[in-house]
Design a protein around this nucleic acid. Structure first.
Length: 644
RNA sequence: GCCGAUGUAGCUCAGAGGUAGAGCACUUCCUUGGUAAGGAAGAGGUCACGGGUUCAAUUCCCGUCAUCGGCUCCA
C-alpha cells in the first residue's frame, strides 16, 4: 500500500501500482470521466500510469491548464499520425501544446501543403480520434530509440534524442504512430471530439534562423463541439475588433507606402482620441509632481556613446545623419532617457529637490524588422508616454509605489479591470549579461518586489527577463475578449546615472548618485490606442470618443436649428457632426448606429418649436425629448465620473 | 531579415491570354422624411511597380515594393 495526499489535504491509502484514474474512480465516477492527467509530486503524469510510491496527487481536468495542455498535446500526436498516413515519409520536429491549442513542426520533404489541405487532415484526425485507442507509454533505451528514428530517417528526432540521457527516454504510441515524447497523454483518443486546424506557417528548426525552416500547422481541439464553436466565435470576434480594420473604418489612422513602412499617420479623429488620452495622463502627472520637458527627435552620436546604447545596439540600429560641413553625426532617437539625463545635468540638485520627474510624450524611432510590423502595435516610429524620475536611494521604494499607483489609476479609468504584473529579474546564471554592480541589482530587485508587495499588487516573477540595465515591472492587461497585452512598464536604472555622472548634493555636503526610474503607463500611444480599440471594439468610452454626438435633422428645414444645437454643445466641448445628407431619418439613424457614436440627436419641427432635442443612445435606447442643457448635463456628468 | 499567401474603383470583393465588373461609399437630380438601408442618373481603375514571354499581358514567368499569417528579433 502507498499513501497519497490530495490537494484538500485528505489522505488515502491505496494499492501500490494504482493509477490516478483509480484514485479518481474512488472519489466519483464523474471525476473519473473528466480527469485528463495528474500531477504526482509536482510531476505531470498520465492518468493511467501506475504510482508506486507515497505521493501528493492533483487530478487535472479540462478546467486546469495542465488538463488542457495534455489534451492538446495528445491532439498534436493525432495530427502527426494523420499526416504520416496522408504524406508517407515526412519528418517530424516538435509538436507541443501552446496557450491556445497545439502545433507540430514538420519537414514535408517533397510534398507541398496549403490551407486547402487542412480540411482533409482534420477529417483524417477525426477518423483516428473516433477509434478510441489508448496512448501507450513505452520506456525505451537510447540505442533502440536511435535505431527507430534512423529507420524512419528522421534527423530531427535523432537530434533531440542525442541530447537525452539514456534511461529517461520514452515513446508514446497510438495506433501505428509512435513518437518520441515525454508525455503525458490522455487515456483515449476518443475524448477528442472537436478538432480545428487553424493555419500553416513557417518555423525554423529549434528557432534558429540559420537552420532549416519547417512547416508548422496550428490547431485546437475540444471535448465538446460546442466549445469549439465558442472558440471559433471568439476568434471571429477578435477579427471584428482588429484595430487595423476599425482604425480604417473609423478614420483613426492610416499608413502610406510613400511615407514608409511602419510609420503611422494619425488622422484627425485618431489624433483627437490620442490627445484626449495624453491630456488625461498629463493632468494626472501634474498632480503627481511631474515636470514637462520637450526634447528633439535626434541626438548627437556622443550622447549614445555616453549612454552605452551605441555600443550595445551598434551600427546596425543607428544610421547616422551627417551634417554637411563639420562632419558631426546625429541619430534618430530610439529612446528619450539620454536626453532627459542631460536635462537633469543642466542644473545642480540638492537632496531636498529629489525626486525630480521629467515627463515627455517623446516620439522615438526604432528599426523593426519588416516582417515584424503589425498595425499600430509594432511600428518604426512611436510616441512613448515617457518619464524619468531621479530619486535618492532612500526614496526608491516609495516612488516606485506611487508610480504603480499612477499606472493603476490609468488602467482603472480606462476600464481595464483585469490585469497582472510581471517583475522581470536577472537570469541568475548569466549575471555577466547585465551592466551594473551585483549589489545595485539586488537593491533594485528588492525595492520593486517590496513596493509591489506593499500595495498588495499581485505579480509573477520572471527570471532572465530584465533589461540589460535594470529590473522592471511590466503590466499585462486582459481585454474584453480575454486576450493579454503588455502595456505599461516601470524600470529601475542604476546604469545611466552612472554613465552620465548624475549627481545631487546630500545633507552631508557630499556628491551622491541618484537612481533613475523609467516609466510609461501606456507604453506607447500607438500600441495603447490599438489595444484600447480592440478592448472596446471601437465603442470608446464617452470621454475619449472623437465624436460624442451626431445631429440628425429630419429634413433640410431644420439644418439651422441643428447648427444652433451643435454650437451650444460645442461650448461644453461636446462635439460631433450634423448629418445634412438628403437621406431619410431611418437611413441617418442606421449610419449613426454603425459609426458607434454614443448619442444620436434628432431634431425636427417639434424640437425646433419647443427648443428641445430628441435623444437616442447608441444601441437603440431612446432617452426621448429633453432640453439641450439636459443632454449637456448628462454627458458632462458621465465624463466627470471618470476624469476627476 | 526568413518561409508562405495576397495585391483589381475610396472600401469589401468577383473576373479572365484579346486592354475590366458588383455591392457599398461619392456627385447630381427627384423625394422633405420621426428612431437601423427611399428612388434615378452619373463619375471613378496604366488591374501595386519594373522587366520578360507572346501578334496581344491586368491575366503566364522573373524581380521589386507593400499587406497578411507565422518564425526570428525587440533599448
Amino acid at each position: 500500500m502507498i499513501n497519497i495526499t490530495l490537494p484538500d489535504g485528505s489522505r488515502k491509502k491505496i494499492e501500490n501500482g494504482s493509477t490516478p484514474m483509480d484514485i479518481a474512480k474512488s472519489i466519483s465516477e464523474g471525476l473519473a470521466r473528466n480527469v485528463l492527467c495528474a500531477s504526482v509530486n509536482g510531476e505531470i503524469w498520465d492518468s493511467n500510469r501506475p504510482i508506486n510510491f507515497d505521493a501528493k496527487i492533483i487530478l487535472h481536468t479540462w478546467k486546469d491548464k495542465e488538463g488542457k495542455m495534455v489534451f492538446w498535446h495528445s491532439t498534436s500526436h493525432i495530427m502527426a499520425e494523420a499526416l504520416e498516413e496522408l504524406y508517407p515519409g515526412i519528418k517530424f520536429g516538435i509538436g507541443p501544446a501552446i496557450e491556445n491549442g497545439f502545433y507540430y513542426d514538420i519537414d514535408f520533404g517533397k510534398y507541398t501543403i496549403s490551407t486547402e489541405d487542412l480540411t482533409e487532415i482534420e477529417k483524417k484526425m477525426k477518423e483516428i480520434a473516433s477509434k478510441k485507442v489508448t496512448f501507450e507509454r513505452i520506456n525505451i533505451t537510447k540505442k533502440d530509440a536511435i535505431s527507430f528514428f534512423k529507420r524512419k530517417k528522421d534527423e530531427y528526432k535523432l537530434e533531440l534524442i542525442e541530447e537525452l540521457e539514456d534511461g529517461e527516454i520514452t515513446f508514446y504510441r497510438q495506433n501505428k504512430f509512435t513518437d518520441l515524447c515525454k508525455g503525458p497523454h490522455i487515456t483515449s483518443t476518443g475524448k477528442i471530439k472537436a478538432i480545428k486546424l487553424l493555419n500553416i506557417a513557417g518555423a525554423y528548426w529549434r528557432g534558429d534562423e540559420n537552420r532549416k525552416q519547417l512547416t508548422r500547422i496550428y490547431g485546437i481541439s475540444f471535448q465538446k463541439q460546442k466549445d469549439l464553436t465558442e472558440h471559433l466565435e471568439m476568434l471571429e470576434e477578435a477579427k471584428k475588433r482588429d484595430h487595423r480594420k476599425i482604425g480604417k473604418e473609423m478614420e483613426l489612422f492610416t499608413f502610406s507606402k510613400k511615407v514608409g513602412q511602419g510609420l503611422p499617420l494619425w488622422l484627425p479623429k485618431g489624433t483627437l482620441l490620442r490627445e484626449k488620452l495624453e491630456n488625461f495622463l498629463k493632468k494626472a502627472q501634474t498632480k503627481a509632481g511631474y515636470l514637462p520637458v520637450v526634447t528633439p527627435h535626434i541626438g548627437n552620436k556622443d550622447l549614445y556613446i555616453c549612454s552605452g546604447h551605441y555600443e550595445k545596439y551598434g551600427v546596425d540600429s543607428f544610421q547616422p545623419i551627417k551634417t554637411p560641413n563639420d562632419d558631426e553625426e546625429f541619430f534618430l532617437k530610439p529612446m528619450n532617457c539620454p536626453h532627459h539625463c542631460e536635462i537633469y545635468k543642466s542644473k545642480q540638485y540638492s537632496y531636498r529637490d529629489l525626486p525630480v520627474r521629467f515627463a515627455e510624450f517623446g516620439t522615438v524611432y526604432r528599426y523593426e524588422q519588416s516582417g515584424e510590423l503589425h498595425g499600430l502595435t509594432r511600428v518604426r516610429g512611436f510616441t512613448q508616454d515617457d518619464a524619468h524620475i531621479f530619486v535618492r536611494p532612500d526614496q526608491l521604494k516609495e516612488e516606485f509605489i506611487s508610480v504603480i499607483n499612477l499606472v493603476l489609476y490609468v488602467f482603472n479609468s480606462l476600464e481595464f479591470k483585469d490585469f497582472k504584473a510581471q517583475i522581470s529579474l536577472r537570469d541568475p546564471n548569466e549575471k555577466n549579461k547585465y551592466i551594473g554592480s551585483d549589489e545595485n541589482w539586488d537593491k533594485a530587485e528588492n525595492a520593486i518586489i517590496e513596493a509591489a508587495e506593499e500595495i498588495g499588487l499581485e505579480f509573477i516573477k520572471e527570471y532572465g527577463e530584465a533589461a540589460f540595465y535594470g529590473p522592471k515591472l511590466d503590466f499585462m492587461v486582459r481585454d474584453a475578449i480575454g486576450r493579454e497585452w503588455q502595456l505599461g512598464t516601470i524600470q529601475v536604472d542604476y546604469n545611466l546615472p552612472e554613465r552620465f555622472e548624475l549627481e545631487y548634493t546630500g545633507s552631508d555636503n557630499q556628491k551622491h548618485r541618484p537612481i533613475m526610474i523609467h516609466r510609461a503607463p501606456f507604453g506607447s500611444m500607438e500600441r495603447f490606442v490599438a489595444v484600447l480599440i480592440e478592448h472596446c471594439g471601437g465603442k470608446f468610452p464617452l470621454w475619449l470618443t472623437p465624436d460624442q454626438i451626431i445631429i440628425l435633422p429630419i429634413s433640410e428645414k431644420y439644418h439651422d436649428y441643428a447648427k444652433k444645437v451643435s454650437k451650444y454643445l460645442k461650448n461644453y466641448d461636446i462635439c460631433g457632426p450634423i448629418d445634412t445628407r438628403a437621406e431619410t431619418t431611418n437611413r441617418k439613424i442606421r449610419d449613426a448606429e454603425v459609426s458607434k457614436i454614443p448619442y444620436i440627436i434628432i431634431v425636427g419641427e417639434r424640437e425646433e418649436k419647443e427648443k428641445t432635442i430628441s435623444v437616442r443612445e447608441h444601441g437603440g435606447n431612446e432617452l426621448g425629448i429633453m432640453s439641450i442643457k439636459n443632454l449637456k448635463d448628462i454627458i458632462t456628468e458621465e465624463i466627470n465620473k471618470i476624469i476627476t
